[in-house]
């Protein structure tokens, strides 16, 4: 038996929708955000529309049931039911969309806000555009010393950072569960691998209070580390972060 085109289209849409839910929420155990899912479905619907209507015969077949529903005298009962149910559904949908809820409002943080050109740390002005890790050069020049520096950074990390960012640098430290926003996961390809070392220096030295307004809400618990760590210690920790995760800092020079 051939499934009518309209039903086909609807089935495809429902199938894709359930597919997303199944794959992300059940199989991968990582819920698909409703905002993303809504847009995904919008474009899937556009695609389905395109495939079903690009040729004349198919289009006619697709809209035939709708046309019949609206025009044919024999379908009066169904027509009346549909004409009542659809507006009610639309109204209900709108109502539940708009009704105020007790949930906290959706928050959007810009995780990597644009850095300022220059910052003030350790009582001096530092130009972030030119700032470089003073120890990075030892990676090639003096691997022994570099190893030592990384080890130093590891020590600093374990003593200060791992409580939140985790001993695997995955953002799952003992205290992480109590924090919102949650501590950064340095293993993620979207974090330190995307950034220059100067950016990390800025974020570590000035902490949550040093975030610009666009990164609000301003509730990051990251301490202002320049009050606790020396400049050298921060640079060593940065070496450690990249070394442990196996990532490379963003740079424009070819150092491969």
């Amino acid at each position: 038996m051939k499934i009518p085109k309209l039903l086909q289209a609807v089935l495809v849409l429902i199938g894709v929708y359930l597919g997303f839910i199944l794959v992300f929420d059940v199989l991968l155990d990582a819920v698909i955000p409703s905002s993303v899912l809504a847009m995904y479905m919008f474009f899937v619907a556009a695609g389905v529309f395109m495939v079903f209507t690009f040729e004349e015969d198919g289009t006619r077949e697709l809209v035939a049931p709708i046309k019949a529903l609206v025009e044919e005298p024999s379908r009066r009962l169904i027509r009346n039911i549909v004409f009542v149910v659809v507006p009610v559904l639309a109204g209900a949908g709108t109502y539940f969309q708009m009704v105020p809820s007790l949930d906290a409002p959706v928050e959007l943080r810009s995780i990597h806000p644009a850095p300022p050109t220059a910052i003030k740390v350790y009582g001096k002005r530092v130009n972030l555009l030119k700032l470089e890790n003073p120890y990075r050069k030892f990676e090639k020049e003096d691997p022994e010393k570099f190893k030592e520096l990384v080890a130093g950074g590891a020590k600093v990390y374990i003593q200060n950072c791992q409580y939140c960012h985790g001993d695997k640098l995955d953002g799952k430290g003992p205290y992480a569960a109590g924090l919102n926003p949650t501590p950064l996961n340095f293993q993620d390809v979207g974090t330190i691998a995307q950034l220059q070392e100067s950016y990390l220096f800025w974020r570590i030295a000035t902490g949550g209070p040093g975030l610009p307004k666009e990164a609000a809400p301003w509730i990051s618990s990251m301490p202002v580390w320049q009050n606790f760590l020396s400049e050298e210690e921060i640079w060593q920790v940065i070496l450690f972060l990249y070394d442990y995760t196996g990532r490379r800092p963003r740079s424009w020079e070819h150092d491969g």
């Binding site: 003030k120 002005r125 610009p212 666009e214």
Partner: peptide, 21 residues
Amino acid sequence: FGIPQIEPAQPPKQEKIDLGA
């Protein structure tokens, strides 16, 4: 309405000789 509205920060006060500190 589809995307969150981020209100950008006002432009910083003009760059200073670090007089604040």
